[in-house]
């Protein structure tokens, strides 16, 4: 039986401070452009679609589908090394962006492209949580 996935603490930039604060409350935030409506990922202060600097936070549904994934069988990373095999995936959120993450709470061999997933939060113990996904 492998160990659970480690929950590393993210470094927090000024642009993403509210994002990480919300994860501690179990909310997944997305930055959205006030001018053209584009949903922005990864979080940043300006809109890469139209160049506007008027952007604000919106709450995501936390639902998505697996765009692609890999089952990792060899890892050099401390902690992750003990949790093999584990799944890294791009999950396409309902709101559009494809976010890099882990798919958890299931047999890695059961993960498929297109599989519906929903967000779960793993507490880092530092006032921030990691957004991961499990089969919906």
């Amino acid at each position: 039986m492998s160990a659970p996935l480690p929950v590393p603490t993210p470094a927090v930039s000024a642009e993403a401070e509210e994002f990480w604060a919300a994860t501690a409350e179990g909310r997944l935030l997305l930055r959205r452009c006030d001018d053209c409506g584009t949903v922005i990922w990864y979080p940043r202060a300006h809109c890469p679609a139209c160049g506007s600097q008027r952007t604000s936070w919106t709450q995501a549904s936390g639902k998505g589908t697996v765009y692609t994934f890999t089952v990792v069988h060899r890892s050099m990373l401390e902690g992750f090394r003990d949790a093999l095999p584990y799944v890294i995936a791009y999950v396409e959120l309902e709101e559009g962006p494809r976010v890099l993450t882990n798919v958890v709470d299931c047999d890695p061999a059961s993960v498929e492209v297109g599989m519906p997933v929903s967000v779960v939060f793993h507490d880092t113990g530092t006032g921030r949580a990691l957004f991961r996904f499990r089969p919906a």
Binding site: L5, P6, P8, P10, A11, V12, S13, E15, A16, Y42, P43, R44, V72, R74, S75, M76, L77, F80, A83, Y86, I88, V99, L100, T101, N102, L130
Partner: peptide, 13 residues
Amino acid sequence: PDAVFESLWGMSG
């Protein structure tokens, strides 16, 4: 800013 969101998931190389 990109690395913050990509370094958490066990990407090993």
